[in-house]
Design a binder for these strands. Structure first.
Lengths: 262, 262
DNA sequence: TGACTTATGTGCGCTAGCACACCGAGCCAG
DNA sequence: CTGGCTCGGTGTGCTAGCGCACATAAGTCA
């Protein structure tokens, strides 16, 4: 979480889909306040019960939210990458949640300080609409995770996890140990080892010491459970359904216009 | 879902916590549009992929949201009773979700037509704030369900489920078969039978042919996993944290005032 | 009253995932 | 180049929950 860009990453807020979806005038208000930060692997972005000072828009980093049980066991319930944003609690009203955010893949993110978020949010324009849509997509992701935990095998869930991660990266390799994945899926490391072995034997992935390469993505999708597709589609629908042009610039116009009065 | 009250139930919108939390002026705008409806057991309120015409505020009914898998297996991911509302998609922006809503305990609810919801929502006053808070509480419930599905036994989950249901009723008995509970928890009927037997032998509950009586609630809480408490607390915090007085009547004032600028 | 339906109890064999334990190979620092 | 650490592979039991099959009990209705 070291502030400022050290080397020279891809310094472009447009890499984040949510930021990119905003209209030029909203962008011109917000972008001056954006700060580029580097998120190192396994950094703790946000601990259960604490309050957040910024909202983060990942560009090439991935952060996952996990719920931790009393006995220490944990499960990741959702993944945030360049398609979304970290810190919805900040505008949802509650100041904190019982979850924890961990950087799952190192990279960069732009962050926006709390006051600016609140201010823009309270203009009740594009940002509000976009955040609500995104929140709904998040709920879908969390819900699907719940069902997946109940009904699908570790094998399938590993595929789902790899795919979710891949989608948020621009390359085909992931830096994470099996132990780490185990924590994310809420299963034992050995279980991940078994599942990973199968995938490797099938020629779908290859890996060594914390570096996983996806070789056959199509196969991976076949082997995954439906949960991946459901989440992906739902997210796509929610965020494309409201293209920039249709957004209302003037808060006055937002409401009843849009809805077919059934 | 037969409209209008047939006999004479408890015709009072204040029984719903969310409606009750609104200030008199908002209530006076909304209440004339409320329609009391009866929700019969197992009625399908809302099928996956369809669009909702009303938002429902249960008084003494309970509705649960379930996600259904391709193979037909399903799991309930959250429960809505008099503490909340059914149909957040309506104001979140997406028109539908991949979930299904089933009446889990028969009773009454007030419903508000879509146009009125949208209109009030777009005033950006109390209702908006309240809905956002409630949505955050929902996310917590869904997330906790996900973790619970992974880490806890059927026994514990049955306790959690009974408690969640009890909290939304004014009496100590539930009308639901073990088969039905099985569908809700996403487990086999036999699994529920085993768990229920244990509870009965411990004198915690008694049941027969679809009627479950809770005898020792304290015990039930002890036997449940932590998930119940977490959800309950989080919901309480989110909804009391914003008492009526602190709500801003004038949309202009909503924003930056509230936040400690950290 | 007897046949039928629905809700619950139970047994059996099977598999997934767990707990624990131990090993080997790569990697790094002194 | 050596000792220690991390990551990954494997084996041996054990248990929870599943699928299936069947037995009973409690209502329901002709």
């Amino acid at each position: 979480m070291s502030p400022r860009s050290p080397a020279k990453p891809q310094p472009n807020p447009q890499q984040n889909h949510l930021l990119a979806a905003l209209s030029p005038d909203v962008q011109s208000r917000l972008f001056p306040h954006l700060e580029l930060v580097h998120l190192p692997l396994r950094a703790l972005m946000y601990e259960s019960g604490t309050s957040m000072s910024h909202v983060y828009f990942p560009t090439d980093s991935i952060v996952s939210l996990q719920y931790v049980m009393e006995n220490g066991a944990s499960t990741a319930i959702l993944v945030v990458g360049n398609e979304g944003l970290l810190g919805i609690t900040l505008f949802m009203g509650g100041e904190s949640t019982p979850s924890r955010s961990v950087v799952q893949s190192a990279g960069y993110a732009y962050r926006l300080p709390r006051p600016q978020v609140k201010e823009e949010f309270n203009r009740h324009g594009q940002l509000l609409l976009l955040m609500l849509r995104y929140t709904q997509a998040l709920i879908t992701q969390v819900a699907q995770t719940a069902v997946c935990n109940r009904h699908h095998s570790i094998d399938q869930q590993l595929c789902r996890w790899l795919l979710l991660s891949m989608d948020r990266l621009s390359h085909n390799h992931l830096t994470m140990t099996q132990e780490f994945i185990g924590h994310m899926l809420g299963v034992r490391r050995e279980g991940v080892t078994q599942a990973a072995l199968k995938l490797q034997q099938l020629g779908v992935i290859s890996y060594s010491r914390g570096l996983i390469k996806v070789i056959d993505r199509d196969q991976l999708e076949h082997l995954s459970c439906e949960c991946y597709e459901v989440v992906k589609k739902e997210t796509a629908i929610l965020l494309t359904y409201l293209p920039q042009r249709q957004l209302i610039k003037n808060p006055e116009d937002i409401p009843v216009v849009v809805l077919k009065t059934q």
